[in-house]
Design a binder for these strands. Structure first.
Lengths: 203, 203, 203, 203
DNA sequence: TATGAATGAGCCTTCATTCAT
DNA sequence: CATGAATGAAGGCTCATTCAT
């Protein structure tokens, strides 16, 4: 039967992805060889090329996958908590993501160091296409409902994501400029300040 | 006389630095070989190792040097213009830097992609040690003079630098989320919002 | 079937060993490069590293192999000739070995110059472990049978091997202190003298 | 004055020789570079080539020098002690040399590992030319005086030197086949046995 | 004489990629 | 589909030797 074969193939692909993920988050990505990925996945070197073109490809797939997972988790957490204020909701999500990344620094290191625009950015920007991930939509809806108005909400969202991402990277990884827990107040102040630029006085 | 030799050595070092800079800003740094740097500098391969330990070292030197140069230019421009408001001064400097980077995208790409904390951050953080570069000091003085008060001005400065750096990178290089000229208003709004969090009402 | 591949691998390994042996016995080992070994074996440079770690490893393998072969030959020759006296048997073997080395000076040069204790010595000392090579045992048995008694036969054997090895090296290679054929009488006298130190008067 | 200059030159040459000796006896000779020899001697790299052709040359000079020194010491010690028997005198000298080498293993390692025939052998063989070093002569005289007769005393001497040298090397350095102090009885027995082959019964 | 900057040949080693089995 | 042996291009780096000063 065909499904059996297909399943088998999917399994091998997953083994390779998992293997690469393990290695990429453990070591400097440049030092990871395709040999190692294959060996650690328990398949032959040649098999790698049956599923992926090269290291770049598998790396990009992993970054998209992990970023998405993290955003989805934050989104789900938000839905499960009844947070109504616009700013509060944004801060809640950011905080949720930061907590996850703090627990799992290697993922953060992996994503940040390899996050080239053209992968993640495209991903976030075109997030409309993702059935499950409706963060962008939510952002816009929530802003409207709470009487925040932005000329271009996408750009604001982008600024915030990028700012949080890059500053928190060094905060979590290197404790610079401050350890993440001490840094958060400053960061959240900054985020709130930016969001407040869109606040209107409508009731 | 010895001065001739010393001069000659300095010249060679500069040739190598220039060569590396040319290559690093033109191509992906990983694809640049030491052979090429030497060849393009017009010296033998072994000569490279007389002046630098490896590619990392020459890269770090270049990043420090270029970052410093850009900040120095901005600082000088600020001094030459009589801008008194705190927010205006910050925005002026940011704008000055962005204009320079826009003109010279390759430098931006080079700095951003290779700017590891531990190089630049240390540099900016310890900028006190630099006799000429007194941005940090200026920031603090200017804030005080204009009645802005921050619990930790350094952190605020850091947030701004990092945010500007990372978001403008993709704006200038990839036009995402918007081309830099359209993006600036949003960015400056965000910066002003952050700065305003420190505003007090003293006269 | 797999046997074909395995056979092929064994063949390549042998090609490399032969190539290395040819080069090592022809030239100063330090001047032989891995490139050459591979090229002369008709394989790619990388292939070398599939079979051996480095030049040292292949060299040690060759020394063990060749030394063993020479001793085995001498042993076999002894068995095929009915020589009963203890001293005569030892001299016979030494002579057999010297004749072989004389015919093949390059092997002698190769072995002697690279024979580091830790390779050969271990080998000779632990010769018990070698099923085929029972020289050490034979020496002890033969001594006993012929009423020679040594406090530590192993040490005596070792002295003889080492003495023969080092003096004959220069005799065969450099004709010093005498060409091997003229040198032999002196050498054999010395060997017999040493052996005779263990002679007892039992009948 | 010229003598001053000449003295200065001799001094530099000695500095280089000492430097090389220090390095050669401390490390594997192949890893010692000419740069290091010069640096450790406190002169410029180019200066090395003013005094020596290459590493081989300086190495050979050192080996001759050290070997000679050791033999001279043994000879002097013999003269200072009134030992009349032929065998006893030989054993005395060997023992003297072994004690010195045991104290200074690095010299032994250096000499043995680099003692190529053509250096030392020539040296010992042509020892007649050395005004101070008259070992060979002594050997012959002493043999005669004590009624030992050898067809070719030189060859016997050579066998002994070589045998002692090569077996004691591994004994002192690797404790194989036995530590030197336990090995000596066997060795001396062997030496005496060889010498005794020349004994005559004249009174 | 003495210096040491400059040279560049040449080594070792890795690893992405291919392809016969 | 899967394998893994074989490839060979490519890079980093060292160091003996030269030569202008």
């Amino acid at each position: 039967m065909k499904s059996k074969i297909l399943e088998n193939k999917k399994q091998k692909e997953n083994k390779l992805l998992k293997s690469a993920f393990d290695l990429f988050t453990t070591r400097d990505i440049d030092t990871v060889t395709i040999s190692e990925i294959a060996r650690h996945a328990g398949v032959a070197k040649g098999t790698f090329y049956l599923y992926f073109k090269d290291k770049d490809q598998i790396r990009n797939i992993l970054i998209s996958r992990e970023s998405r997972r993290i955003f989805l988790n934050a989104q789900k957490a938000l839905e499960e908590n009844d947070i109504r204020g616009f700013e509060d909701a944004i801060i809640f999500m950011i905080n949720h993501i930061l907590m996850e990344l703090k627990k799992n620094r290697s993922i953060l290191a992996f994503i940040e160091k390899n996050l080239s625009w053209g992968i993640f950015s495209d991903y976030v920007q075109n997030a409309f296409a993702d059935d499950e991930l409706h963060i962008k939509n939510d952002f816009i809806q929530l802003a409207k409902k709470n009487h925040y108005q932005f000329k271009d909400p996408e750009v604001v969202m982008y600024i915030i994501i990028d700012m949080v991402g890059s500053t928190c990277y060094s905060s979590i990884i290197n404790n610079k400029p401050l350890p993440i827990d001490q840094y958060k107040p400053y960061l959240f102040d900054a985020v709130r300040a930016i969001l407040r630029t869109g606040k209107t006085n409508e009731k």
